[in-house]
C-alpha cells in the first residue's frame, strides 16, 4: 500500500498570490470536447480542459450548469444513470476513459470520489474502510489494520474513533462521516480525487476541518473540487474553472490559475461572478 504522509504534513494555507504550488504543471486528466446528455436534455456541452497533476482545481458556477455531471463523467459513474450519453474524449494519464473496454473498476479505484452528502455505508466504522480494501483483493489482516489506522490518522479521525471502531458509522457526526468517506477513498490510494461540494452539507466548523484536509492533499493527489463557495475556492484552489449555462446547456466559460481567474478574469461573466454581481 501507499505510504501516507502523516497528518502533520498538512501544509499551511498560502495566499492566493503565491499559488499555484505545483511548480511544473503536468496535465493528468485531459478533457476534450466533452458533452453529456440525459436523454435529449444536454447537461453540459463541448468542454475542453486539462487538469494538472498534484494540484487542486476548483469548478465553480451557478447551480445546474453541469459541474456535478462533469465530475461524475470522470470516473464513469455516469454509466449508472440510464439514458445518460457522454461524447468527446477524456484521457487520464494517457488512458482513454470513455473506451467501452476500459476497466471501470480499476478506473474508479484510481479516481476516488467524495459526495456532497456524506455516504458512509450502514456498517461499522472499521467495516466501512476494510470492506472496500478486501473487495480490491487485500487479504493480509495486519496490512488492512495498518491501512485503516493510517488513513484515519490522515483525515484526523483516528483519535476520535479509535476506541469505537466497531460502532456504526452512521452514528458519527456529519463532519466525521465526511472525513470517514475521505479516509475510505484514500484507503484505496487513488491518484485523483473528485469532490462534489464536500463541505456544503456540513456546519461551518466541520467544513473548516474538511477544507484543511483538502489543502493537505495537495501534491499527493490530483484534486478536482466542485464548490459553490467562492471564498472556499479562493482559499484552496490552484486552478479554477467557471461553468455557466448558455443556450440551455452548461459551458466552460473560463479556466486558468486561481490567481488569474479570481483577480484578472478575462471573460466579463467571470468578472461579474467572482465579484458577486452575477450567479
Amino acid at each position: 500500500m501507499k505510504p501516507s504522509v502523516p497528518a502533520s504534513g498538512i501544509q499551511p494555507w498560502c495566499p492566493l498570490e503565491e499559488r499555484p504550488a505545483c511548480c511544473e504543471p503536468t496535465p493528468f486528466i485531459e478533457v476534450e470536447r466533452l458533452s453529456l446528455h440525459y436523454g435529449q436534455k444536454p447537461a453540459f456541452h463541448d468542454v475542453t480542459i486539462s487538469i494538472n497533476k498534484g494540484c487542486i482545481t476548483a469548478l465553480v458556477g451557478p447551480s445546474g450548469c453541469g459541474k456535478t455531471s462533469f465530475l461524475t463523467s470522470l470516473n464513469r459513474l455516469t454509466d449508472l444513470i440510464p439514458g445518460c450519453r457522454v461524447s468527446g474524449s477524456i484521457r487520464l494519464d494517457g488512458l482513454d476513459l470513455l473506451d467501452p473496454n476500459t476497466d471501470v473498476i480499476r478506473l474508479r479505484r484510481r479516481v476516488g470520489m467524495i459526495f456532497q452528502k456524506p455516504n458512509p455505508f450502514p456498517l461499522s466504522i472499521r467495516k466501512n474502510l476494510e470492506f472496500p480494501l478486501r473487495e480490491h483483493g487485500l487479504r493480509d489482516r495486519e496490512q488492512i489494520a495498518a491501512t485503516v489506522e493510517t488513513v484515519l490518522r490522515d483525515v484526523g479521525l483516528w483519535d476520535e474513533v479509535k476506541d469505537r471502531l466497531n460502532s456504526p458509522a452512521l452514528a458519527l457526526s456529519g463532519g466525521q462521516q465526511q472525513r470517514l468517506c475521505m479516509a475510505r477513498a484514500l484507503a484505496l490510494s487513488p491518484e485523483a480525487l473528485l469532490m462534489d461540494e464536500p463541505c456544503s452539507a456540513l456546519d461551518p466548523l466541520s467544513s473548516g476541518v474538511v477544507e484543511d484536509l483538502i489543502v493537505g492533499l495537495r501534491n499527493r493527489y490530483t484534486v478536482l473540487i466542485v464548490t459553490h463557495n467562492l471564498a472556499q475556492a479562493r482559499r484552496i484552489a490552484d486552478y479554477a474553472a467557471l461553468f455557466w449555462v448558455q443556450n440551455g446547456a452548461g459551458q466552460l466559460i473560463e479556466a486558468g490559475t486561481a490567481k488569474q481567474v479570481f483577480t484578472e478574469p478575462r471573460d466579463p461573466l467571470t468578472a461579474a461572478y467572482v465579484s458577486g454581481m452575477r450567479g
Binding site: 459513474l77 449508472l80 473498476i105 478506473l107 474508479r108 479505484r109 459526495f115 455516504n119 450502514p122 472496500p132
Partner: peptide, 10 residues
Amino acid sequence: QYVRGAAALG
C-alpha cells in the same frame, strides 16, 4: 447514495 458511493470506490 450507498450504491453510488460503493460504485465510486470501484
